[in-house]
């Protein structure tokens, strides 16, 4: 297992190098740079722009720029955001906790709901309850998150006043107190639910279908013939087999943990990585865009590795040496 993990980690290095090349050249291929676009004759002048372009090295040949960036990157220097004028690492560190908090809450909601609904539907397929869940799921998949977000704000924040409509915390409470954490949880619930809706739907459907399929297999019939209680058959024998496809999702979930949710964060003005990424792309903040993209790529690779290792744990048949 360890050898396998090491081999996979080594295999990631050329992948990451390739990704870095693609990321860099795609970023450079975006029209304009951080100094074009919003020209304000009041507080800048063409000389300043020319000077800054020179200072930032935008006039150097592309391969020189790439080598410079990747050398710094490997040494842990992700560059300085041209927009926020802060080191990118600080910027990301500032937003990352918010994003992780949102993603974990949404994952928790997803897993709890998906397991509850999936187990129910899988055990009682084609009943009224199953059909209701089915309907709910397809609505969840079909409604895009920006529509769901806007409607959720309208109903739950403005009409019912259950949740705040924006932000991640009430600024007037003191940091570190219980109140502070309650306020954060209160703020995160609505975006987390909207964010989790889509994956809840697909997880539930996958779990349900897999449960139904597995319940018709020979080992289930054997277990039944032996007189094992139905509850035990479902919770132990079938569920363990049905979790396997979900583990594949988990790999992506890990990447999503740090990737943030661009649209949800924007609608709820939740200051996380997704919002930062969106702003950086529109303002051509290359160092930030490239650092976040690299971080996401690395997380996808790591997430997949973890998923592969987890396969072995849930299913001894695919255990690798």
């Amino acid at each position: 297992m360890l050898k396998y993990a090491l081999r996979r980690i080594l295999g990631m290095i050329p992948m990451l190098i390739l990704v870095s090349i693609v990321v860099f050249f795609l970023a450079k291929a975006m029209p304009g740079d951080s100094l074009s676009g919003e020209i304000d004759p009041l507080n800048t002048n063409p000389e300043y722009i020319a000077e800054m372009r020179e200072k930032l090295g935008y006039n150097d040949p592309v391969y020189v720029q790439y080598t410079r960036w990747i050398t710094d990157f490997v040494q842990g220097d992700f560059g300085k955001s041209t927009r926020y004028k802060l080191p990118v690492s600080e910027l990301v560190a500032e937003k990352l906790p918010n994003t992780i908090f949102l993603a974990l809450t949404s994952l928790l909601i997803t897993y709890v709901l998906a397991f509850a609904m999936g187990m129910y539907s899988g055990r009682r397929p084609y009943t009224l309850g199953d059909n209701l869940i089915f309907g709910f799921n397809y609505a969840g998949i079909a409604i895009p998150s920006f529509v769901a977000g806007v409607f959720a704000i309208y109903f739950f924040a403005f009409k019912l006043n259950w949740f705040p409509f924006a932000g991640s915390v009430d600024i007037e409470v003191d940091k570190g107190t219980i109140e502070y954490w309650m306020s954060r949880i209160h703020h995160v619930m609505l975006p987390a639910f909207v964010l989790g809706m889509f994956s809840t739907a697909s997880y539930t459907q996958f779990l349900r279908n897999d449960l139904i399929e597995n319940s018709r297999k020979d080992f289930v019939r054997t277990a039944m013939a032996k007189g094992t209680p139905t509850g035990k058959i479902y919770n132990v024998h079938i569920l363990r087999n049905s979790i396997i496809p979900l583990v594949t999702f988990l790999g992506f979930d890990i990447a999503a943990l740090v990737g943030g949710a661009i649209i949800t964060e924007k609608i709820f003005t939740y200051p996380g990585i997704g919002l930062l990424f969106l702003d950086s792309v529109t303002s051509r903040d290359y160092p930030t865009v490239m650092a976040i993209t690299m971080m996401l790529s690395a997380m996808v690779l790591i997430g997949n590795l973890i998923a592969d290792i987890l396969y072995g744990i849930v299913d001894p048949r695919i255990r690798l040496g």
């Binding site: 806007v150 704000i153 309208y154 924040a157 403005f158 006043n161 409509f165 924006a166 932000g167 924007k266 609608i267 709820f268 003005t269």
Partner: peptide, 14 residues
């Protein structure tokens, strides 16, 4: 407070 402009009308009304 920073808000998204989809929320402007609702936030003012409330």
């Amino acid at each position: 407070r920073i808000i998204d402009n989809t929320a402007t009308v609702g936030a003012l009304q409330n």
